[in-house]
């Protein structure tokens, strides 16, 4: 399973990853000022670098959840997770309902609001690019590592163990919201950027699955109940009417 490990203590906020991402995904023309603009994620920006109040630089990009809420919400299955772990988007299926945008706890999927026929846009972990994601390749400070998730978790634990003063003993993304492919280690708390912490290791699809599973049973139950009730009541009414008729006849004769 492919993953990215982000070492927040290494990042100096140079935005090279943003530039590489924009160029590789043909979001801007070469030589533009994309790199210098401190924009939020948008339909034309799949990753960005936040300057936090603690004076750290925090990369924002799709975290590629192991159990993505967006994919569970997408009614046509346009957003889906590849076997290698990348959460990707099939624009041919999309109808533009934007339920994924509502579902994503990190508010990652963005929309092309400025076009007449808009699509959802987000990072796809460069799943069809040779040599891994463009952002990782561009990072000059080794803040980004790309590889198998298990290896990166091991690497993260090694770094935290060998340098306990430098890192908080926590890997953001290991369990939050069921785990994500993009992992963070840091010397300041990233709690604010991980709203899924309060779900206690459960993913959003975990929360909604019981409701989905119960739907067919509910349908059969309701339909069965209605049929039976309807039959009983109509039969009773019919019998009562017949009885009344007979009673009338009896009275008449």
């Amino acid at each position: 399973m492919k993953a990215i490990l982000t070492d927040v203590t290494h990042c100096v906020g140079c935005n090279r990853c943003v530039e590489a991402c924009a160029l590789d995904n043909h979001l801007v023309e070469r030589g533009s000022e994309a790199r210098y603009s401190r924009e939020e994620l948008s339909g034309r920006r799949y990753c960005t670098v936040l300057h936090t109040p603690e004076d750290r630089f925090l990369r924002r990009q799709c975290l590629h959840c192991l159990e993505p809420a967006c994919a569970s919400a997408c009614l046509v299955g346009a957003l889906h997770r590849l076997p290698e772990g990348q959460v990707v988007y099939d624009s041919d299926k999309c109808i533009g309902c934007r339920y994924c945008m509502l579902a994503c706890p990190y508010q990652i999927p963005k929309y092309e609001w400025d076009t007449t026929h808009p699509y959802i846009r987000k990072c796809d972990l460069c799943h069809d690019r040779e040599g891994g994601p463009a952002c990782v390749e561009a990072c000059p400070h080794d803040a980004l590592l790309y590889g198998e998730r298990e290896d990166l978790l091991r690497e993260a634990r090694k770094r935290i163990r060998s340098n306990p003063g430098r890192y908080l003993p926590r890997i953001w993304g290991e369990h939050e919201g069921g785990g994500t492919a993009v992992l963070f280690i840091s010397d300041v708390s990233l709690e604010e950027y991980w709203p899924t912490t309060k779900l206690e290791k459960r993913s959003i699809p975990d929360l909604t699955a019981p409701y989905v599973v119960s739907t067919p049973f509910l349908a059969v139950g309701v339909a069965g109940f209605l049929t039976v009730t309807s039959w009983i009541i109509h039969r009773r009414n019919r019998l009562a009417a017949e009885a009344a008729e007979r009673g009338d006849e009896g009275g008449a004769s």
Binding site: A71, A73, L75, V76, C94, G96, C97, T215
Partner: peptide
């Protein structure tokens, strides 16, 4: 009117994601 690509309104008939509540609502 609300969906971004109205001319594709028929897509949920052909592409199913049973896990989506919106699919059920649709």
């Amino acid at each position: 009117m609300d969906i971004g690509l109205p001319f594709r309104f028929y897509n949920p008939f052909f592409h199913w994601n049973e896990h989506s509540f919106l699919f059920e609502v649709f």
